[in-house]
Amino acid sequence: MSGEHLNGYKAGSHLERVLRAGHFAVTAELGPPQAADGDVIRKKAALLKGYCDAANITDNQTAIVRMSSIGAGAIALQEGLEPVIQMTCRDRNRLAMQSDLLGASALGMRNVLCLTGDHQSFGNHPTAKNVHDLDSVQLVQMVVGMRDKKAFQCGEEIKGAEPRFFVGAAANPFGDPFEWRPYRLGKKVEAGADFIQTQLIYNIERFAEFMENVRRLGLHQRVYLLAGIGPLKSPGMAKYMRDQVPGMDMPNELVDRMTQAAEGIDKEDKKARAAAWRDEGVRIAIEQINQLRKIEGVAGVHIMAIEWEEAVKLLVEGAGLYPRPEPASIPEADAGLTHE
């Protein structure tokens, strides 16, 4: 495969085509199992397929060993769900990363999300050595260089087919220093990122402030920014995120709304309470998607419904984002169409 046939598309992934066609994109998240169990992926893929344009396959998320994102991504592809391969800098050096990128590309994967990775002390192998040979900005640069310069990180030419990915990176609008976050995003854009998925957003006002700064730097015109959304399951989850998760901004108002959702329901009726909480979580998320859509520079949403994949359908339908668009396949180069 080579870039010349792509008619201006970076990788020609479904996600890229949806965004290029100007649609409001939806990506979701699929967490691989902590076992060699392919059916888990198939089941989750069935829940997501049709309701998102592509699904992120996490890479040993929170530093817990899981099926590899590329392995799970290959299964997702077989199931007709386009994967976004997440790749962290924590577990692999530049050699391993590049060889995995070649493999993923050969398997037909076309999106990759470049991440730093949670520290291993959070996970189930806290005594592991971490790698961080590259950081996420440098990883973006490397993946883009392999695609656009047909070169390995060392500068050597890739003599056969180059891996072609639509390259993503993450942004946490609420990490500190808050004023610096748009500049850090700018570095990822400068490194060549094509799309950005943000950390979970609950404080819309503060996110809007972040986006104002992003627009001031003109970054929204150079990158597709997908805002992170996560439906809350319970007031406990909301409190945990407010109090325990580094880099998370959870307004008290949402914690209160979740708590109130089960008021009046018998404390013993756990099922009814859980259902009431989840309904409220979905309602809040739909409201937030509608608010985020109005913010200039937001090109889509990234729905993270970890171990609650059923919620993606509810959110997408509830926000009027269903059915998902089917953008035209890449026009043949000789059809006379030009892009960029």
Partner: peptide, 28 residues
């Protein structure tokens, strides 16, 4: 904690590193 050259990572909050509230975030 991650030897980042283009930091800070997304876990930096209130001046401390994501791995410990005792540890200042170097990038902050």
């Amino acid at each position: 904690a991650k030897q980042l050259l283009n930091g800070p990572c997304g876990g930096s909050q209130n001046g401390v590193c994501e791995i410990s509230k005792e540890l200042p975030c170097a990038w902050q």
